[in-house]
């Protein structure tokens, strides 16, 4: 029941991940952060098998940073995504593959163009305007289909995120303990305090 959400707007990307760390039906922690900042302009959110997730995220994080140290330039989000995809594609045909699904959001360091990449553990990659992983896909994508436009401003983006969060609370049997939200824009990565506004009940 891990939730990953990504929404692009005019000049930003919102990446959100659920705070609950779960093992089976048990919630082990309610303040789990399933995101990593790869560099000043890209964030990765991950879900999947515990152990694999952090291990893989840190592998990617370290390599993206190593690239910047060696070459003195930051990788653009599509370049990072391409790298991550190739790592996952290599992994899926290895003896023990990483079982990690990812969302990768960022803005181009030069043009400021926002982009959001959806990747699964097989190495499937798609650049899309809004994305989700896990059960959130079934509840949120239809909402986003209806309300999303490529040129929405940040306030509207956060409103839509709230609609998604409410829908998840309404429909998921287990509370995912709220969302960690990060906003990437040309200015960098900002953590956004996403207030938990209490219970939402189905009709």
């Amino acid at each position: 029941m891990e939730v990953l959400l990504g929404i692009t707007g005019k000049d930003y990307v919102i990446i959100a991940s659920s705070k609950a760390a779960m093992r089976g039906p048990t919630v082990l922690k309610a303040t789990d952060n399933k995101t990593r900042n790869l560099n000043k302009n890209s964030v990765m959110a991950y879900s999947g098998e515990s152990g694999d997730t952090v291990q893989f995220a840190e592998l990617i994080q370290a390599n993206v940073q190593l690239y910047s140290m060696r070459n003195g330039v930051a990788l653009s989000p599509p370049a990072v995504s391409s790298f991550v995809r190739s790592e996952l594609a290599k992994s899926i045909r290895s003896k023990r593959p990483y079982n990690v699904n990812l969302l990768l959001g960022g803005v181009d360091p030069k043009t400021g163009e926002p982009s959001l990449h959806w990747l699964d553990y097989l190495g499937t990659e798609a650049k899309i305007p809004y994305a989700a992983h896990g059960y959130a896909q079934y509840y949120c994508l239809s909402l986003l289909d209806k309300h999303h436009h490529p040129d929405i401003d940040l306030a509207r983006g956060l409103t839509i995120l709230r609609m998604c969060s409410d829908e998840l609370k309404r429909r998921l049997p287990i509370d995912s303990k709220g969302l960690y939200v990060k906003i990437v824009s040309k200015e960098g990565i900002k953590e956004h305090v996403f207030e938990d506004e209490g219970q939402v009940l189905p009709a």
Binding site: W118, D120, T124, A126, K127, I128, A131, Q137, Y138, L141
Partner: peptide, 9 residues
């Protein structure tokens, strides 16, 4: 591009 019945892109 889909995952089973769900359309991703």
């Amino acid at each position: 591009l889909g995952m089973q019945a769900l359309t991703v892109s």
